[in-house]
């Protein structure tokens, strides 16, 4: 358990990075988890296929909010090809939580990744395959 709430998660939950919204933006995608009501909105500014600015807002458990906060730090400067490569394994590595045996909480952790993927694919005018989100 304490692993689950290691200091970094609590720190990001308390003091989230890049919290807010961007106006104007190139991508604004909101996702939510109807099971627990977690909500993440992710806004991006994109210049020459590169993410130049990012902000998230939302409400929910410490895991969903802290994961979003950590993810936004990663995104600045990333190009969209890299975003397409970036997946669940990378995110779990980033947040460092043992969620393999906890599918319910895994959904919390992956909510911001879902917003990112859905938003960027839509921006690119491409279809997203669902296994990319699972």
């Amino acid at each position: 358990m304490s692993d689950m709430y290691r200091d970094l998660i609590l720190e990001h939950h308390r003091y989230p990075h890049n919290f807010g919204t961007l106006d104007p933006h190139d991508v604004s995608q909101e996702e939510h988890n109807p099971l627990c009501g977690d909500r993440i909105r992710l806004d991006l500014r994109i210049v020459d296929n590169k993410i130049t600015e990012v902000a998230f807002s939302g409400k929910g458990c410490a895991v969903s909010q802290a994961a979003a906060s950590m993810l936004t730090d990663e995104l600045i400067g990333m190009d969209l090809d890299q975003v397409r490569q970036y997946g669940k394994a990378e995110l779990l590595d980033l947040i460092g939580l043992p969620l393999d045996k906890n599918p319910v909480r895994l959904k919390c952790a992956l909510l911001s990744l879902k917003a990112l993927k859905v938003g960027v694919y839509r921006y690119l005018g491409q279809n997203i395959t669902t296994d990319e989100l699972d």
């Binding site: 358990m1 709430y5 109807p34 627990c36 458990c61 909480r105």
Partner: peptide
């Protein structure tokens, strides 16, 4: 504190409770 976080911390203390909408949206 979000209900999921509460339930998870309680689980670590050996207390089993449920968090969610309990099928009553």
């Amino acid at each position: 504190v979000h209900p999921h976080d509460i339930a998870q911390i309680l689980d670590g203390e050996g207390v089993a409770v449920r968090a969610g909408h309990h099928c009553t949206q």
